[in-house]
Amino acid sequence: SFQYVPVQLQGGAPWGFTLKGGLEHCEPLTVSKIEDGGKAALSQKMRTGDELVNINGTPLYGSRQEALILIKGSFRILKLIVRRRN
């Protein structure tokens, strides 16, 4: 089963996490790295392996390109929903 975790990061880029996968690579869009001391790490809500399913209220369909555009369009606040295996 899965758990959906809301994450809100503040203060602008860099957000402190790296993505891998996506439709382009025929795999889920997941968090591959969280930078020590970065905003994602400080939130204590994101983990490597989390799947990104929503950015700023926009549902994602797995495209890494789409996710990067939405993330780049976030100035002060980035709201994410990640899906994690229980």
Results as ranks from 00 to 15, higher is better:
1 S>Q: 09
1 S>T: 13
1 S>V: 09
1 S>N: 15
1 S>H: 07
2 F>Y: 15
2 F>T: 09
2 F>M: 08
2 F>N: 08
2 F>W: 09
2 F>E: 06
3 Q>G: 03
3 Q>C: 10
3 Q>Y: 13
4 Y>P: 02
4 Y>L: 10
4 Y>G: 02
4 Y>S: 06
5 V>G: 04
5 V>R: 02
6 P>I: 11
6 P>S: 14
6 P>A: 15
7 V>E: 03
8 Q>I: 15
8 Q>F: 15
8 Q>P: 02
8 Q>H: 10
9 L>G: 04
9 L>Y: 04
9 L>W: 00
10 Q>C: 12
10 Q>T: 14
10 Q>A: 13
10 Q>F: 11
10 Q>Y: 12
11 G>P: 03
11 G>M: 07
11 G>E: 00
12 G>F: 07
12 G>R: 05
12 G>Y: 01
13 A>W: 07
13 A>V: 06
13 A>F: 06
13 A>E: 12
13 A>C: 08
14 P>C: 04
14 P>K: 04
14 P>Q: 03
15 W>M: 00
15 W>S: 07
15 W>R: 02
17 F>L: 02
17 F>N: 04
17 F>H: 01
17 F>Q: 06
17 F>E: 04
18 T>N: 08
18 T>M: 10
18 T>Q: 12
18 T>F: 15
18 T>R: 10
18 T>V: 09
19 L>T: 05
19 L>E: 05
19 L>Y: 04
20 K>Y: 08
21 G>V: 00
21 G>W: 01
21 G>K: 02
22 G>S: 04
23 L>W: 11
23 L>H: 09
23 L>V: 14
23 L>A: 15
23 L>K: 15
24 E>N: 11
24 E>W: 00
24 E>C: 05
24 E>L: 06
25 H>A: 14
26 C>K: 12
26 C>F: 12
26 C>E: 14
26 C>A: 13
27 E>T: 08
27 E>K: 10
28 P>H: 00
28 P>F: 03
28 P>K: 09
28 P>D: 10
29 L>M: 02
29 L>D: 03
29 L>K: 03
29 L>Y: 06
29 L>A: 00
31 V>Q: 00
31 V>A: 05
31 V>D: 00
32 S>H: 12
32 S>R: 07
32 S>M: 08
32 S>N: 11
32 S>A: 14
32 S>L: 09
32 S>F: 10
32 S>G: 15
32 S>I: 12
32 S>P: 02
33 K>P: 02
33 K>I: 11
33 K>M: 12
34 I>N: 02
34 I>W: 02
34 I>K: 04
34 I>C: 02
35 E>C: 10
35 E>S: 12
35 E>Y: 12
35 E>K: 09
35 E>M: 11
35 E>N: 09
36 D>P: 14
36 D>V: 13
37 G>R: 10
37 G>V: 04
37 G>S: 08
38 G>R: 01
38 G>H: 02
38 G>I: 00
38 G>M: 00
38 G>C: 05
38 G>Q: 01
38 G>L: 02
38 G>A: 02
38 G>W: 02
38 G>N: 02
39 K>V: 08
39 K>M: 02
39 K>Q: 06
39 K>E: 01
39 K>T: 08
40 A>E: 04
40 A>C: 10
40 A>N: 06
40 A>I: 03
41 A>Q: 13
41 A>G: 09
41 A>V: 03
41 A>C: 12
41 A>Y: 12
42 L>R: 10
42 L>S: 10
42 L>C: 10
42 L>V: 10
42 L>P: 05
42 L>H: 13
43 S>P: 00
43 S>E: 07
43 S>N: 12
43 S>V: 06
43 S>F: 00
43 S>M: 02
43 S>G: 08
44 Q>M: 12
44 Q>N: 14
44 Q>E: 11
44 Q>D: 12
44 Q>F: 10
44 Q>G: 14
45 K>S: 11
45 K>N: 08
45 K>Y: 07
46 M>Y: 01
46 M>F: 07
47 R>Y: 09
47 R>I: 09
47 R>A: 09
47 R>E: 13
47 R>W: 07
48 T>H: 11
48 T>A: 12
48 T>R: 10
48 T>Q: 12
49 G>L: 00
49 G>R: 02
49 G>P: 00
49 G>K: 02
49 G>V: 02
49 G>Q: 06
50 D>K: 02
50 D>L: 01
50 D>C: 00
51 E>N: 03
51 E>C: 06
51 E>H: 07
51 E>A: 00
51 E>D: 00
51 E>S: 03
52 L>K: 03
52 L>Q: 02
52 L>G: 03
53 V>A: 11
53 V>I: 08
54 N>D: 09
55 I>N: 06
55 I>Q: 03
55 I>Y: 00
55 I>E: 00
55 I>V: 14
56 N>S: 03
56 N>H: 00
56 N>Y: 08
56 N>D: 08
57 G>S: 06
57 G>R: 05
58 T>F: 08
58 T>G: 02
58 T>E: 09
59 P>I: 14
59 P>Y: 04
59 P>E: 13
59 P>V: 07
59 P>K: 14
59 P>M: 08
60 L>K: 01
60 L>I: 14
60 L>Y: 00
60 L>D: 01
61 Y>D: 15
61 Y>R: 15
61 Y>T: 15
62 G>A: 05
62 G>I: 04
63 S>I: 07
63 S>K: 09
63 S>W: 08
63 S>M: 06
63 S>P: 03
63 S>Q: 07
64 R>P: 04
65 Q>R: 13
65 Q>M: 08
65 Q>G: 09
65 Q>I: 07
65 Q>N: 13
66 E>Q: 14
66 E>L: 11
67 A>Q: 02
67 A>K: 05
68 L>T: 11
68 L>D: 15
69 I>N: 15
69 I>L: 15
69 I>S: 15
69 I>M: 15
70 L>E: 07
70 L>D: 02
71 I>R: 04
71 I>D: 01
71 I>T: 03
71 I>N: 05
71 I>K: 01
71 I>W: 00
72 K>M: 09
72 K>P: 03
72 K>E: 13
73 G>T: 11
74 S>M: 01
74 S>Y: 00
74 S>F: 02
75 F>A: 14
75 F>M: 14
76 R>V: 07
76 R>Y: 09
77 I>D: 15
77 I>S: 15
77 I>E: 15
78 L>H: 04
78 L>Y: 00
78 L>C: 05
78 L>N: 06
78 L>K: 00
78 L>M: 10
79 K>T: 13
79 K>D: 14
79 K>F: 07
80 L>R: 02
80 L>N: 03
80 L>M: 11
80 L>I: 10
80 L>Y: 09
80 L>W: 04
80 L>S: 03
80 L>F: 07
81 I>S: 01
81 I>V: 14
82 V>T: 07
82 V>D: 03
82 V>G: 02
82 V>M: 08
83 R>P: 05
83 R>L: 04
83 R>F: 00
83 R>D: 03
83 R>Q: 00
84 R>C: 01
84 R>I: 00
84 R>L: 03
84 R>A: 03
84 R>N: 00
84 R>M: 00
85 R>W: 08
86 N>S: 11
86 N>G: 09
86 N>M: 14
86 N>I: 13
